[in-house]
Design a protein around this nucleic acid. Structure first.
Lengths: 257, 257
DNA sequence: CCATAATTTGCGGGTTCCCACAGTCGTAAC
DNA sequence: GTTACGACTGTGGGAACCCGCAAATTATGG
């Protein structure tokens, strides 16, 4: 029963391999994958005792890879090994774990742990099949998160779309988009100074839209990695919508709702 | 003459140490630092043959550390070892290299190179004192970059400030801020479709401010790491300006330009 | 089934932001 | 000097955006 590693970065992969080989020799061989697609393939073929997945990988992310692995191999024990406790991933992982049958064993571990601690965490999942949330990440796990609607709005905002375009993309009215954004702003821009004179200043000092963008980045509700992937998808939709828009315009020059 | 490594991530540091120890044994010992402050201290004390610096580190970044090292040890050979070719760093490094006397030898190397290639690159700087730009990064090195003014405006925009607040921060008129932002938008949002009907659609589809934000992130003109550091500084200024604003308001309720 | 909450929509308004047209100021090159 | 360029400022208008109020629609739970 081998251990499977998925990590695109050469240095981290080599380090992890060497560490696990030394400490968990009885599980050899250590299998390696450098992207999400191949880790799914190998996991389903080899059914390893443990998968250690980096979350941010080119192509299929570690989270999506986990979904695919659990689908074909529900008892898989998976450790997410990550640099940052981004809420965006935590939320997705929660949903996947709940949706999977079992539910399966998983861990969520900070890359920056000292070796000894990291090894204890790995052993807990590998040997005992326990769930293991890194204490460094516990805050992010217990904090309230965005609803799907708000997350969707946030994505399109962060990709630079106008309210008009978001409305088209989500089949909403303009006012509907504004409504979603309002609740989003409320969640992201909770100011500890309510009613104080500072509130007036802050209202002048911030552009609420970009401020929410910044806050979302800071809290890991979006990140550059995911944005770029989403941006590629958006381009395709934009291409199609440009055509649709052109046909809407030619007959009469009125703008859709 | 030792080699000095600065890298906050445990895995990457261990990998790099092991690799250099194996391949460049004659330069032992390999010294390690986990943050920018200590790497500067060690470099000035030990005057190593080569420094390998991760750029994104907590506290003092690799770029700022390099500036400090070259200041006290101008012949230092420094390799920047990074995951992404962010223009923001490239621009800063260029300026530092030009400003330093010598100018000193440096390299700029992608973390994801295969070992053999990485070792060749390292040898070029370590043994020969050559300048070494990773071919993967050459594009970013030749692209035109923002002026200091535009970069400043971009930062405050990305931190979520309103035009009004940027004006206060930069001692400009509101119109001056708009002017800077206009040139910024022009540089960031160069559309390959000039004059076509698509241009009309894009004007409707994008919120120019957040779109520029997204583009700047994508091209690495800003990144989360630097933003968070800048955000901490901004907080202090905001604190002071809130007070100043309060005193401006009490005498008469008019808003300064 | 009803009740409660969440979401969406419309309307009106106030504000910020973007931009085109000008005009000023300072620096640098001819 | 003047010519050119870049950055900053002013004016004014139009568009997009934010928000409060209120009603309609759709979930969600007892």
């Amino acid at each position: 029963m081998p251990i499977l590693i998925a990590e695109d970065n050469v240095a981290q992969r080599a380090y992890l391999r060497e560490l696990l080989e030394r400490e968990f020799a009885e599980y050899k061989p250590i299998l390696e994958a450098a992207d999400g697609e191949s880790v799914v393939r190998i996991a389903l073929a080899e059914r390893p005792q443990l998968c250690v997945l980096d979350i941010q990988m080119p192509g299929l992310s570690g989270v999506k890879a986990a979904r695919a692995i659990w689908k074909g191999f529900p008892e898989a024990r998976i450790i997410f090994w990550t640099q940052f406790p981004h809420e965006i991933y935590i939320n997705e992982i929660r949903k996947i774990v709940r949706a999977a049958e079992g539910p399966p064993a998983y861990g969520f571990i900070d890359k920056n742990n000292p070796e000894s601690r990291f090894l204890r965490f790995v052993a807990a999942v590998l040997e005992d099949g326990a769930d293991m949330i890194d204490p460094n990440f516990k805050d992010a796990f217990t904090q309230p998160l965005l609803t799907d609607f708000e997350a969707e709005a946030l994505y399109y905002l962060a990709l630079g779309l106008s309210n008009w375009a978001i409305a088209r993309k989500c089949h909403l009215s303009l006012r509907g988009v504004e409504s979603r954004l309002t609740t989003l702003y409320e969640k992201l821009l909770v100011t500890d100074a309510e009613g104080t004179p500072d509130e007036a200043y802050d209202k002048l000092a911030f552009n609420i839209r970009t401020r929410a963008y910044f806050e979302a980045l800071r809290r890991g509700l979006i990140n550059q990695d995911e944005l770029e992937k989403a941006g590629a998808d958006l381009e395709k939709w934009l291409e199609r919508d440009r055509k649709k828009f052109a046909t809407e315009q030619t007959p009469e020059s009125k703008r859709a709702n």
